[in-house]
Amino acid sequence: MRQYVYTVPVVQLRDVVALLGRFPALAGVDLDVDEGEVVLLQGPNGAGKTTLLRLCAGLIPPASGEARIFGLDVVSQARQVRRRVGLIGHATGLYRDLTVLENVVFWARASRVDNPVDAAKAAMDRMGIETRLADLVVDRLSAGQRRRTSIATMVVRRPELWLLDEPHAGLDQSGRDKLDALILDAAAAGATVLVASHELERVGRLSPREITIAGGAVVSHVS
């Protein structure tokens, strides 16, 4: 397991405003998250959770304020930030005409992972993807199997910051348990995890720190 040592918070947001078109999806968010923390983001639909995660991934620039990940500016140093971040969003990030194994190996290679085939098989195994599914094209998988494969493509990259947007959606009980174990293992190894979820009880068991977002602003913070 890799251990990461940071002298600054992994996530450091100061009065961050983010726009989706002209709509202010985030309206002055302040947030610090330290290395190895698991943080639950909760809030109603449209609260700004997804925007916050995408901003932390360096995919959306802040309209104003300061956003630093690993101490790096998410705008001017976006590429350095992105390489160290893993994001599970609403879309799977999978190629439908490639097999499960081909997808995971591709993303391992795209992230310059050593021994990509072995790493891909290990990631698939950790997400409980059965060997018989490895050579099946993604288009023929169930929604839950796609979700597991999607998570495996993130795990294989060994990101230092995990940004998970409703990661349990579509997973069966076994998949949810596997994912929870992955999150806890990653945090124990020093990775930082932000989970946006409506499953408060489940994610609450992973972390005592909960942040509630509403209308694009942090409205409560429980540690």
């Binding site: 991934a57 995919l59 992105r82 390489r83 971040v85 893993g86 994001l87 969003g89 609403h90 879309a91 799977t92 990030g93 999978l94 190629y95 439908r96 993303w107 795209a110 992230s111 310059r112 493509t153 990259r157």
Partner: peptide, 17 residues
């Protein structure tokens, strides 16, 4: 369209390529 149907565009942006 390959890079836009299932969010692979974002995944590519997060890769080292």
């Amino acid at each position: 369209n390959l890079e836009h149907d299932d969010g692979t565009n974002d995944a590519l942006r997060l890769s080292a390529i």
